[in-house]
Each structure stands twice: as C-alpha cells, then as structure tokens.
Design a binder for these strands. Sequence first.
DNA 1: AAAATGTTTGGCTAAATGGCAAAATAGCCA
DNA 2: TGGCTATTTTGCCATTTAGCCAAACATTTT
Lengths: 106, 106
Amino acid sequence: MNVDRQRYRRRAEVLKAMGHPSRLMMLEALQAGEMCVCDLQRLVGSDMSTISKHLAVLRNAGILADEKRGLQVFYRLRVPCVTRFFECVEEVLEQDQQEASTGSRR
Amino acid sequence: MNVDRQRYRRRAEVLKAMGHPSRLMMLEALQAGEMCVCDLQRLVGSDMSTISKHLAVLRNAGILADEKRGLQVFYRLRVPCVTRFFECVEEVLEQDQQEASTGSRR
DNA sequence: AAAATGTTTGGCTAAATGGCAAAATAGCCA
DNA sequence: TGGCTATTTTGCCATTTAGCCAAACATTTT
C-alpha cells in the first residue's frame, strides 16, 4: 500500500502547485500560449524573485516547461487539461453560490 | 481588477484544499458514495482529530457536505467533477513518466 | 565592461499540519 | 432523569512548510 501513498503524494503535489492565486493567474494566461517571465511578472505584479519561485513550483510539479532563448526564459503549459481543471473549479464555486442564495449546504 | 483577484483567491482555495495526500485519498473514496468519519479514519489511518480537520478543510472549500445521523457524521461529495480532476492529474503524471524515460522536459 | 533578465540564497513572518486532551453531541439503559 | 458510552469536533501546542523581500549570483546581449 506504500506505492499508493506515493501516488497520492505526487497527485497532491500537482494540485498544491496550482493552489495559489498568482500561480493560477499565470496558468490561465499561459493557456493562450507561451510567455516570458517578464510578461508574467507584469501580469501578476509581484517581485521578480517571487514570480521566479512560483514558476519553479509549477515546473517541478511537471505542469510547466521552460526554455531559455537569448536573455529571456519562456514558459509554456505541458498539459492540455488545465482548462478542464478550471471548469471543474467553477462548478464548485457556482454550486456554492446557488446554495448560498437558496438554503444551506447539505 | 480587484474582483479578479478575489476570483483567483477562491479558485486557489479549492485547489489547495485538494492538494494534500490524505484529503485526496478521502475524496477518491467518496466518489463511491458517502462515508462516515470513522470509515475515513480507518482508510487513512491518521488520528481522528487530524481526519476531522482535513474534512473541515474540504467542507469549507465547498467540496464536501456533511450530515449528522445518529452518532455518526457522514460526508459526501458536493461536486460531480472531481473524477475529471483526477483524470487530468493523471495526464500530467503520465506525460511526466514518458518524458522521463525518453528525454528532457522541454 | 555595462545592462538586461532570471535564479538562488538568507532571513523573517505567516500558515499548515499533526497529535493529545478536553469538550460537545447523540444514543442507550437502568 | 441521570449516568455511561460512542463519535466527532475544538483548543492548544510543537513542528514543518510556504511566501515574500532583498541581496548576491549567473548568463546573455550590446
């Protein structure tokens, strides 16, 4: 059963990597195509070192690929299914909205 | 643009809630139907209080609903799309595997 | 060499995690 | 009712992890 533990750990790593507002913002932007770190930095607005670290988290989780061309490093999605991820999350939030306006959560 | 920040925060909350091995294990088990806390405790093997806290995280994120019947509290998925989530994560991990055996991650 | 673009490291604060003990809740039974 | 048991949740504490800023470092371009 220890193999399973390992699998859950890996899966959780992917989800945890996505579970941060700035990282989500970058992932969504990258759906349109690759971007350099400088673009993402302008998008999110945090310190460059912070952005770089967030990108490293996503890279280590296997969600992003990086490629250096000249001075810049470009990041792109390695996985096509991220969009579906977002749809699912929206489902959660919408259901939350509905039940908040009608009744309780049971 | 502050509304967007809020949206990203809420989305991230859902993903972060799912991003823990024990919580993933419980979510997967709950796909088959509702379970009481005691079942989930046996499944995961952690201390009862720890399980209860993990369940609270998932409940607060809007992923689970709880209902007390008699002595026991039953938890169930509030969202149908969790299965798709897992499929997506698997895609990530498989692609990882493939590229690990062939070449680098670019 | 100087400038531009990222990454790494150190230090600091905040948040997450896990376990134990105590409290809350519900059922049972004399 | 009063007490006893079973099931969860809460509070509290210690430990670990995440996040951020600033400074130092590395690489490529000019």
